[in-house]
Computed example of a mutant assay.
Amino acid sequence: MTSEQQTGKPVANDAVPTGRHDPEGRRRQIVHAAAALIPEVGLAKLTHRRVAERAGVSLGATTRYFANLEELRVAALTEMSEVLEHDLATTRERFERDGVSPETLTDDICEFLAEHELVRISIELVVAANADPTLRPLANLWSEGIVKLLTPSLGEAVARGIVLIMDGATMNASVNETPLSREQLSSIFAAILAGAEKPERAK
């Protein structure tokens, strides 16, 4: 997986030119700022004041467009999930081009773990979903997307097992300075695939 910086996708804190006659642009600017702050400071420390400072707008502007902090958080989390969705599209391209193997699985998760922002986005979405069940689809978007990509080649049970390893590696990377090594992950994937039965193809 690669980050949006590597693929050319606009990053969450790209500046959006706005003016008093562009309310939608101003709203996007505020959401971009919040989406950039959450991976840095966490949901618990997100405030209207911090968002206003990052967006370069007045404090009143944030409360004008978002009646409460929860509304702003949801908008920012939704934008953050789009970053993971873009990353998922890159993963799809890799598996379609190179196939599913211990090597491609390892390459994919290692690139993901190397992107601190992507790891933080994943963790913050899970934290938000624990507090608000309506956000679970956003938190599960990446994991369920990987399951869907892997199931045709490996079967659903193996696909979910691999995703559990990826989720665990992501959690591990969020609390440790050094993520699991390429060698560790490759050996885990190789062991899983070695024992996996090929799913029967529909005739």
Results as ranks from 00 to 15, higher is better:
Thr7Val: 10
Pro10Ala: 14
Asn13Gly: 13
Asp14Lys: 05
Pro17Leu: 11
Gly19Trp: 02
Arg20Thr: 14
His21Thr: 08
Asp22Glu: 08
Asp22Pro: 03
Arg26Pro: 00
Arg28Met: 00
Gln29Ile: 06
Gln29Tyr: 02
His32Phe: 03
Ala34Cys: 12
Ala36Cys: 11
Ala36Gly: 14
Val41Asn: 03
Ala44Thr: 12
His48Trp: 07
His48Asp: 15
Arg50Lys: 14
Ala52Asp: 11
Val57Tyr: 01
Ser58Trp: 01
Gly60Thr: 08
Arg64Asp: 04
Ala67Gly: 15
Asn68Phe: 04
Leu69Met: 10
Leu72Pro: 01
Glu79Asp: 15
Met80Val: 03
Glu82Tyr: 02
Val83Leu: 11
Leu88Ala: 13
Ala89Val: 13
Arg94Trp: 03
Phe95Gln: 09
Glu96Trp: 04
Asp98Val: 14
Asp98Glu: 15
Pro102Trp: 02
Glu103Asp: 15
Glu103His: 09
Ile109His: 00
Glu111Arg: 07
Glu115Gln: 15
Glu117Arg: 15
Leu118Ala: 14
Ser122Ile: 05
Glu124Arg: 03
Glu124Thr: 07
Val127Tyr: 09
Ala128Leu: 10
Asn130Ala: 15
Ala131Arg: 12
Ala131Phe: 05
Thr134Lys: 12
Arg136Cys: 08
Ala139Phe: 02
Leu141Asn: 14
Glu144Arg: 08
Ile146Trp: 04
Val147Leu: 09
Lys148Gln: 14
Lys148Cys: 12
Leu150Cys: 03
Gly155Met: 03
Val158Trp: 00
Val158Met: 06
Gly161Tyr: 01
Ile165Asp: 02
Ser174Ile: 01
Asn176Cys: 12
Glu177Leu: 07
Thr178Tyr: 07
Pro179Phe: 01
Leu180Glu: 12
Leu180Met: 09
Glu183Cys: 13
Gln184Pro: 06
Leu185Gly: 04
Ser187Asn: 09
Ala190Asp: 13
Ala190His: 03
Ala190Ile: 10
Ile192Pro: 02
Ile192Ala: 05
Ile192Lys: 06
Leu193Asp: 04
Glu197Leu: 03
Glu200Phe: 06
Ala202Asn: 10
Ala202Tyr: 03
